[in-house]
Simulated assay, not measured.
Amino acid sequence: MRKVPLIPTILVVAAALTMVGLGIWQLQRKAQKEALLASYAAAQTLPPMSWPAVPQKDPLPLFRTATANCLKVAAMRTAAGQNVKGEPGFLVIADCVTGAEGPGVSVELGWSKDPNAGRDYKGGLVTGVIAPDSRSRMRLVAATPGPGLQASAPPSPDSIPNNHLSYAIQWFLFAGIALVIYALALRRKWREAGNG
């Protein structure tokens, strides 16, 4: 009778089960991401809103049209981005004060090849689309570019990746490969033991 080593078998099976569990988790994340993307697509059809006066909790109102009043520019910054033609360059972002209290608003004024462009922006009423922002969680992408800037690429839910299915498939494949390799190693060990 061929003997199966207990500890290595337990370790390999446990590892394979963990990988299968991770694959199932990725499938659940896929369903959650699809629901989130559907809500973002629906947000594009909602009526315009005023910029939130208090910090937003999840879910953020991303991809919805909004209006904000930049009372004063507190800081200017840039981020890598594209214009409406898809050319790479710099997105010029103004971090604004909206009142004595509140979260303020980050306004993406537009795009330029020059990172110092648009620095003469003084604020005012801005209408645009709410997009994700790595620093302030969300920013308002101005529908009309600021002085000396071109329109930046409009934000779209299509830019958010949903690659959870491919991750799930990878985890299932890793589990299968681990089991196949272990089975081949056992077979070789048994063959060598039979020939010895």
Rank of each mutant, 00 (worst) to 15 (best):
Q28D: 07
S39L: 06
Y121I: 03
R64L: 01
L17M: 09
E108Q: 08
P155T: 03
A94M: 08
A175I: 03
P48H: 09
V12I: 15
S136I: 04
N163Y: 15
L179K: 05
E34N: 11
E87L: 07
V20E: 13
R187W: 15
Q82A: 14
I10W: 08
T144G: 10
F90T: 00
G148S: 15
G23Q: 04
D58Q: 07
E34I: 03
G99V: 12
M138T: 01
R119A: 14
M49H: 11
L184V: 13
Y167H: 09
L11T: 12
G148K: 15
Q56C: 11
G110T: 09
N116V: 05
Y167D: 06
A151T: 06
V129C: 02
A16I: 01
A75Q: 10
K57H: 15
R77C: 02
G124R: 00
G176I: 08
K85R: 09
R137G: 04
R77Q: 08
H164R: 11
R139F: 00
P145T: 06
I10K: 10
A31E: 15
V4Y: 14
L22W: 12
V107A: 04
P5F: 10
G104T: 07
Q82F: 15
G118C: 06
S112R: 00
V84R: 15
P5H: 07
M19H: 05
Y167G: 03
Q26L: 03
T67P: 09
V92K: 06
G21P: 01
A31K: 11
T18V: 13
L62K: 01
S112E: 03
A131V: 02
V141E: 01
A35G: 07
A131Y: 00
